[in-house]
Design a protein around this nucleic acid. Structure first.
Lengths: 334, 334
DNA sequence: GCCGGTCATCGAAGCGCTTCGACACTTTCA
DNA sequence: TGAAAGTGTCGAAGCGCTTCGATGACCGGC
């Protein structure tokens, strides 16, 4: 790369204007004549100028960086996380921001540290638990934050997520409409429910509530992720619930195992058992047969989270809760 | 959070020393008496001081941030990527650095941008292709970089990766030692080979070379990731290669499908067909039966990449290539 | 033809930190 | 016993940017 980097002063000299004029061209905070603007922009591109991020942060009290706090714990669905992360980065770039990656290893310390050192302007947190230790911290942090997922006590926070309760209900409605009157939900591993992770519980609640609404019988079970455990769960289910003809799977890692188990138990999908998955589209499409699914709109959630956090940075009031409507896609399995 | 943030000047005043003294206590670049040091550190902790990252970057020409450039393309193993990412963040923190997340969406632009704006000091790139567009850019960037994976032309670069050729060879050796004399490698989807991704090809080369060394017959096939395609591939394989008794699977997403397919085709593992996977440990353990595997040491690779990039930042010369020795773990499938 | 009001631009004062040279003491050794 | 060589600390000069107040130039209105 061409030697030392170009400063705003060199741009100003090259364009024959004051340093402040260059700054105003860039920020648009004062009117600059079209002619001057063009001259400055030309110089910028000729010299290949990029503002020094640190200097900018120091003078403007904005780093133009947001922190993305990922958990990375047992039982989490890593591919989904990655899609969120990617969506957040892409969305942040459209607002001219970059993304600093924080993992949970540092716990609340990391959040405090990057906030206090003005490294980031705002936070996006993923995989929030019902009783999350980071929540009280965020509440009295000066920097705005947005949670992906809902804690038990979301007062004073901005949260965004798929409406999992609606997703669970939609699955029931879909199966009920096709005449299934005895169905089951296979959910996350037991440990995820015990930890109180919101999305797993909310799906189950939506599922259970909808059973009553539709006059359908059914059960909701946790579901581990090894083939043998899945097999046992499915076998037990078919044995204990004789009329069972519909299955909702809300566990990306177990989807494949469930299908294998059914195959091995001699049940055809969808003739003997209809299956709906709550999972990303590509997983549903890749299964055999392709699964009717309620997709987890990772990109949309990530984008929305960034939009909200940018609103807050701009001083606008953000809604406390944003629930994205689930979307059921019919495929070959129902 | 307590009002406006604390500056070094306030710490200095509180401790009764000069600003520069506080700075030297923090950086250790000049000797400070034990007594003064203690007083300063006390003031720092009493006031809750955190240096302003931007100011520090401006004055010292170091941001203490490294960029992690992730691809996120079709056919990639997202969970593995995430482990790398997590390992890189954790390792970076041990060197008092943070991690900025860059995705490939911005292409080489993003790299150029964050380098020019002094947002980051160095780069760690993941999932490098044999013919990677980012490679020439990195080569004449002033900022140091480390690649995870190998491009075709690694001259002038520092690369680190699992020794996939050795991994492929180890699998062959393991199976040969158990008396299998006709084996097959099921690899990544065809598109990954076509793109020239290094790890897929190198595994295959190691596998093929080792066949000859051990006097074992075998074939290497790409492997798609839907159940139906995997099933067809396995069925075809068993049909075309009558004596086949060993299978090496280097495709995390297909591992489960391969086992299901074998089950469905009436082959027992390991009695009829021995299976080795090249994949992270948890995938191998979760399979049924648990698979003998060569693990992909994501944590170790990430840590090593960060160590190398820190060495380069410190002005030490880093080795051009670091290949981590694969480790085969025997489980129930061979 | 002079006044108030825009409009476009400039200059300078920071933002909070690092680092360099200076300086006052000690210690060491011919 | 005095010069040389450390020690520990300070003050001030930036680093590259944003932003505020000031300054002309130019406009229409009476």
């Amino acid at each position: 790369m061409s030697g030392r980097s170009v400063t705003i002063a060199e741009v100003a000299r090259h364009a024959g204007v004051a340093v402040s004029t260059v700054s105003y061209v860039l920020s648009g905070k004062r009117t600059i004549s079209a002619d001057t603007r063009r001259r400055v922009l030309d110089s910028i591109s000729v010299l290949g100028y990029h503002p020094h991020a640190g200097a900018r942060a120091l003078a403007s009290k904005r780093s133009n960086v947001i922190a993305l706090v990922l958990p990375l714990r047992a039982g989490m669905h890593v591919p989904v996380l990655m899609r969120f992360a990617s969506a957040v980065v892409t969305a942040a770039r459209t607002f001219d921001h970059d993304v600093l990656l924080l993992t949970a290893d540092e716990g609340t310390h990391g959040i405090r540290r990057v906030a206090a050192s003005a490294l980031v302007d705002a936070f996006v947190l993923m995989d929030v638990e019902l009783d999350d230790r980071r929540v009280p911290l965020l509440r009295d942090l000066a920097e705005p934050s947005v949670l992906i997922g809902f804690p038990a006590e979301p007062a004073g926070l901005t949260c965004v997520d798929l409406d999992f309760a609606a997703a669970g209900a939609q699955c029931v409605a879909h199966l009920a409409a096709r005449g299934h009157d005895r169905i089951a939900l296979l959910g996350a591993p037991a440990v995820v429910y015990e930890r109180g992770t919101g999305f797993a519980r909310r799906t189950r609640e939506g599922f259970v509530a909808a059973l009553a609404d539709h006059g359908v019988g059914g059960v909701a079970l946790p579901c581990e992720e090894t083939f043998d455990e899945v097999y046992e769960t499915v076998r037990g289910l078919l044995h204990d619930q004789p009329g069972l003809s519909g299955l909702v799977v809300h566990n990306e890692a177990a989807v494949g195992h469930v299908l294998s188990a059914l195959r091995q138990l001699g049940r055809r999908v969808p003739q003997d058992v209809a299956v709906i998955a709550i999972c990303p589209d590509d997983v549903a499409e890749r299964a055999s047969p392709p699964l009717t699914s309620v997709l987890i709109p990772a990109e949309e959630v990530g984008r929305e989270a960034v939009r909200l956090v940018m609103d807050k940075l701009a001083g606008k009031v953000a809604p406390r809760a944003t629930l994205l409507t689930p979307h059921l896609v019919q495929r070959a399995s129902t």
